[in-house]
Simulated assay, not measured.
Amino acid sequence: MKVNSFFLLSFIFLLSCSKIEPRRPINPKPSTTIYKEVIEDSKKINKAEDEMLAELIKKDTLLNFKQSSQGFWYAYNHQIQENLPTPKLGDEVVIVYQISDLNDAIIYSKEELGQKTYKIDKEDFISGLQKGIKLMKTGETITFVLPFYNAFGVLGDGNKIGVNQSIKITVTLIKITN
């Protein structure tokens, strides 16, 4: 009897040691190819926007625009030749600016926006303008042409600036303080 119960227990033990396979998810994660397609589409849209802005800038006979490595164009309306400092991380600047569309129709006037105090790279502000202000000296006025992805992006500002709208911003740097 002891031998039979030993074999029975051994048999049950061997059957219970079978390998358990994990359960597969019912809804597998979406393929990363969808994300890759969205990224590729965004790159194409951004490239088309850059080409359109480059053509627009070529037609501008009043200002001499330069392309920055930061993804925007800029031209000096009034340039200071003196060796003055430019703003750096943590500096506080006071600016006056105006936002217009690419056809120079004013969206937000200087009066509407008033003076803006901005702490360099410490506050949320228009992406392209954050980078552009670092090029300026006190007293200079620069016009920036910002593609939508360096301005208010795919959402606009929820008011006067539309979805995927590129803009021009004319900025005068009033003061830099440390």
Rank of each mutant, 00 (worst) to 15 (best):
Phe11Leu: 12
Ile12Lys: 05
Ile12Trp: 10
Phe13Ile: 12
Phe13His: 07
Phe13Thr: 11
Leu14Arg: 09
Leu14Met: 14
Leu15Val: 11
Leu15Glu: 14
Leu15Ser: 13
Ser18Tyr: 10
Ser18Asn: 15
Lys19Cys: 11
Ile20Trp: 12
Ile20Lys: 15
Ile26Met: 14
Ile26Cys: 10
Lys29Ser: 13
Lys29Asn: 14
Pro30Gly: 04
Pro30Asp: 04
Pro30Phe: 04
Ser31Glu: 06
Ser31Pro: 09
Ser31Val: 05
Thr32Lys: 09
Thr32Trp: 08
Ile34Phe: 11
Tyr35Ser: 01
Lys36Phe: 00
Glu37Leu: 01
Asp41Gly: 10
Ser42Leu: 12
Ser42Pro: 07
Lys43Glu: 01
Lys43Cys: 03
Lys44Cys: 05
Lys44Asp: 08
Asn46Phe: 06
Asn46Pro: 00
Lys47Glu: 00
Asp50Thr: 03
Asp50Ala: 00
Met52Ser: 06
Met52Gln: 04
Ala54Tyr: 06
Glu55Trp: 03
Glu55Pro: 03
Glu55Leu: 07
Ile57Phe: 05
Lys59Thr: 10
Thr61Asn: 15
Leu63Ala: 05
Leu63Arg: 09
Phe65Gly: 04
Lys66Pro: 01
Ser68His: 12
Gln70Met: 13
Gly71Ser: 08
Gly71Trp: 02
Gly71Asp: 00
Phe72Thr: 05
Phe72Trp: 07
Trp73Glu: 02
Trp73Leu: 08
Trp73Gly: 02
Tyr76Met: 04
Tyr76Val: 08
Asn77Ile: 14
Asn77Arg: 13
Asn77Pro: 03
His78Glu: 13
His78Ile: 06
Gln79Glu: 14
Gln79His: 14
Gln79Tyr: 14
Gln79Ser: 13
Ile80Met: 10
Ile80Asp: 07
Gln81Ser: 13
Gln81Thr: 14
Glu82Thr: 06
Glu82Arg: 11
Asn83Ile: 02
Asn83Trp: 06
Leu84Asn: 06
Pro85Cys: 05
Pro85Trp: 01
Pro85Phe: 02
Pro85His: 03
Pro87Gln: 02
Leu89Ser: 13
Asp91Ile: 02
Asp91Asn: 11
Glu92Cys: 06
Glu92Phe: 09
Val93Met: 04
Val94Asp: 03
Val94Asn: 06
Val94Arg: 08
Ile95Asn: 00
Ile95Thr: 02
Val96Met: 09
Tyr97Glu: 09
Gln98Ala: 04
